[in-house]
Amino acid sequence: MDKSKAAAYWKANLNLIVSLLAIWALVSYVFGILLAPALNGIRLGGLPLGFWFAQQGSIYVFVILIFVYAARMQRVDEQFNVHE
């Protein structure tokens, strides 16, 4: 792989990582901590929504993001012809 193609591959990888980490930060920090008091007026499964995001939601989102990362990286690998 030449240097320009390797740089483009790395840029695509970093863009994906940054976007997924931003989603995780939004769910875990913003919804779970900063907006928790406002979200606690809504109930999900008998629990306040702010509490749910802090305790369960961020973990669920993190696991989903792992699968999203794997699927998207498979497509990026195929696009740059570095797949197995």
Rank of each mutant, 00 (worst) to 15 (best):
L44P: 02
L49Q: 09
D77W: 13
L34G: 13
F53T: 03
V76G: 11
I42S: 08
I33H: 13
L34H: 12
G45R: 00
L34Q: 10
I23S: 00
Q56W: 14
P48E: 02
S58D: 07
G45T: 00
F80G: 09
L39K: 02
S28Y: 13
L34M: 15
S4R: 01
Q74I: 15
N81P: 07
G57D: 12
A54K: 13
W52E: 05
F31V: 06
I42N: 06
F53S: 09
V18N: 10
G45P: 05
F67H: 08
I59F: 08
I23E: 03
K5V: 13
L14S: 01
W24H: 10
Y60A: 10
G46M: 00
N40D: 08
F62H: 13
S28H: 09
H83C: 10
A12M: 03
A36F: 05
M1S: 10
A8P: 01
Y69G: 06
L47E: 04
F67G: 14
G57M: 02
R75G: 10
K3Y: 08
I59Y: 07
A36M: 02
W10K: 15
G50D: 04
L16E: 00
E78P: 07
N15C: 06
H83Q: 14
V30H: 09
P37D: 04
R43Y: 00
P48Y: 00
Q74K: 12
R72D: 15
V27F: 03
I59W: 07
D2A: 09
M73Q: 07
F67E: 08
N81Y: 07
Q74H: 12
M1F: 02
S28D: 14
H83I: 15
W10S: 13
V61D: 04
G41L: 00
Y60C: 04
V30G: 06
K5T: 15
F62S: 12
M1V: 03
R75Y: 09
V63H: 10
A36D: 01
Y9W: 13
G45K: 03
F31A: 08
N13C: 11
L65A: 02
S28W: 09
L44F: 13
V30M: 04
P37C: 03
Q79V: 04
G32S: 05
E78C: 11
A54G: 14
L49T: 05
F67N: 10
A54D: 14
L35G: 05
L44I: 11
W10H: 07
V27Y: 02
L49V: 04
G45E: 01
E78G: 12
R43N: 07
W10L: 07
F62Y: 14
A7G: 07
L49S: 05
P48Q: 01
R43Q: 08
F53C: 05
I66S: 01
Q55A: 10
S4C: 02
E78Q: 15
A70Q: 12
Q56T: 14
M73E: 10
Q55F: 13
F80T: 08
S4F: 11
N40M: 03
W24T: 04
V76Y: 07
L47W: 14
L49W: 00
I59H: 06
F53M: 15
S28C: 11
L44K: 01
R43P: 02
Q79P: 06
Y29H: 12
A12Y: 01
L34N: 07
P48R: 02
D77V: 02
E84I: 14
K3D: 11
I33P: 12
L49C: 06
L21T: 03
V61G: 00
F80Y: 14
F67S: 08
L39T: 01
